[in-house]
Design a protein around this nucleic acid. Structure first.
Lengths: 79, 79
DNA sequence: GTGTATTTGTTCGTATGTATC
DNA sequence: CGATACATACGAACAAATACA
């Protein structure tokens, strides 16, 4: 899943994996994405790396985060 | 009690302190260990650090936790 | 039966230090 | 030097189950 010693930064690999799940419709708008803790375990990376991945997904406007609640899949942009 | 600026992680210092009380028989099998809140105050560390210490004690099989109840001293292993 | 307090469970926000590339 | 990555450690907020008056 995650290439633990390759040239591509892990945080981008994690971000791309989640992005893929969103664009494939496996994660639906308004629904939560996995928590930081869950992603840490699933991808076997540090929390900092997960947070950087989420930040990247926010930058792409694929997700939004509610403090102390979780991170959710954003609504798709106007077609 | 806790070295607040030394090389040894606080969560390990807390875990070792509780472990010592168990192995010395100050905390008996089946009896609760101090609550997270109590340990926070006693050791002057954050709750996260206490929880990490408890997790370490669970890993060592010295304690077990009952959700919403507390954490208890485990029975000693077969001699 | 009804609250209130306690305790653990979980989430995200933030900062610091270390190591590596 | 900057970016990546990990571990440690603080805080804050809320949930859920239990215990008790």
């Amino acid at each position: 899943m995650i290439d633990h010693d390759g040239p591509i930064p892990k945080y981008l690999q994690v971000a791309d994996e989640i992005a893929g799940r969103i664009t494939r419709g496996e994660l639906l708008p308004g629904r939560p994405v996995p928590s930081e803790k869950y992603m840490q375990q699933e991808f076997d990376v540090s929390r900092g790396t997960v947070r950087k991945a989420v930040k990247e997904l926010q930058r792409r406007k694929l997700v939004y985060t509610v403090p102390q609640r979780g991170t959710y899949v954003a609504d798709p942009p106007d077609p």
